[in-house]
Design a protein around this nucleic acid. Structure first.
Lengths: 153, 153
DNA sequence: ATTAAACACTACTAGTTCTATAGACTTATT
DNA sequence: AATAAGTCTATAGAACTAGTAGTGTTTAAT
């Protein structure tokens, strides 16, 4: 399960990506209210995303948040790693924070690790390839439209 | 990240599956010691797996634990659901414990949900198809042996 | 019948993480 | 100067994690 925080972060990014189209900046209070996110909690999240190079902000009147990069350059995986930490199912499989499983006798021959290496690969295959822009596109498509994407790709 | 408990459970099952070949029962203390698992903690875990139809046990002298089903009928997914609860990355995507995301305005059009539905599918694709027997086989194979499995399948 | 070996069950706990909330501060606009 | 917005730090309750402890029950060997 991803955290509530990650869910909020991703919802906020989707909202900001939609606003991007009209090149308007959004203020925290609006994002929070429109997406059922506790305002003060969202403040921390957006600030964190800013510090990690996902968002930019302006203070004062007419301030607000906007994407720093285009929505098709922000992957779910990147956001998740910032907000929730490693995606890997085991510490010994993490790219960003490798840690040996202290109680594991021999990592190289660990059966559990081998299976979860495949899990990690599968989830990264989705998360590191799916961008915020993709998520918005998906939502606009009806069932039949999936064919069209396949054709384009 | 899966819990430490799940890691212990899977390691214990691998040990039991290996013992199965020689049709011997293993006692908790041995499994614990040989796999670096706290003994009393493991007791709880194995008991839970027994209650869920994965293991059988005998009490008293010459007692111990054994797999109730053959190792190729026990999937990682099943074990994980018993020990850690739902595998799904969002409550609204869980098969065994569906729960609406309370703060979500419209589930059907939720962009985050759509992306994680693909993640869920990918991880289930591995976890529900990989058995304890597979895990042991994998570990015995050298690199080239992967080809052989593909041929068999 | 006793004893020892093993599983069965319940309760508890220290530490950590999650999900916020609160409040003071800084910056920009009007 | 007043107001609207983001920035930063601290705190706190609830839930979860990873155990530990202790007692009870069953089985087999003597």
């Amino acid at each position: 399960m991803i955290s509530q925080k990650a869910k909020y972060a991703l919802r906020a990014l989707v909202a900001l990506a939609r606003a991007e189209t009209d090149s308007e900046a959004l203020i925290i209070a609006d994002i929070a209210e429109r997406n059922n996110i506790p305002r003060k909690f969202l403040e921390q999240i957006l600030l964190d995303l800013k510090r990690h190079g996902i968002l930019e902000s302006r203070r004062g009147k007419h301030g607000g948040y906007a994407l720093l990069r285009p929505a098709d350059k922000i992957t779910f995986g990147e956001v998740l790693r910032i907000v929730d930490g490693p995606i890997a199912p085991l510490p010994c499989l993490s790219k960003i924070a490798y840690r040996r499983c202290e109680d594991c006798r021999a990592e190289a021959s660990c059966e559990v690790r081998r299976v979860f290496a495949r899990v990690a690969e599968a989830t990264r295959g989705v998360l590191d390839k799916t961008t915020v822009a993709d998520a918005i596109d998906d939502a606009q498509w009806s069932a039949g439209a999936l064919r069209k994407k396949a054709q384009r790709a």
